[in-house]
């Protein structure tokens, strides 16, 4: 499966996180919310315009595009 950026993934698909390249602090915050290497998320909304909406551990989280572009994931 191709390794893509989270910000490139299509709406509706489920992805496994491969690598999180955000700053140390923010990576920790994402960790607390359940997004880190080896975990799964669902892309709820990605209109390539505003922030993404993800389902992480079954909770809805909005994430800025800039940060989503620093996270590597693959579709599963």
């Amino acid at each position: 499966m191709k390794k893509l950026l989270l910000s490139q993934l299509k709406q509706g698909i489920r992805a496994e996180i491969l690598k999180v390249d955000c700053g140390k602090n923010f990576t920790g915050r994402l960790c607390d919310l359940g997004l880190f290497e080896g975990t799964n998320v669902t892309i709820v909304k990605n209109d390539h315009f505003g922030p993404l909406i993800l389902k992480i551990l079954n909770s809805k989280i909005a994430l800025g595009r800039g940060e989503a572009a620093k996270i590597y994931a693959k579709e599963i």
Partner: peptide
């Protein structure tokens, strides 16, 4: 600016 992340509660 700092990164944007927010929970969208039900």
């Amino acid at each position: 600016s700092s990164p944007f992340v927010i929970e969208l509660p039900p």
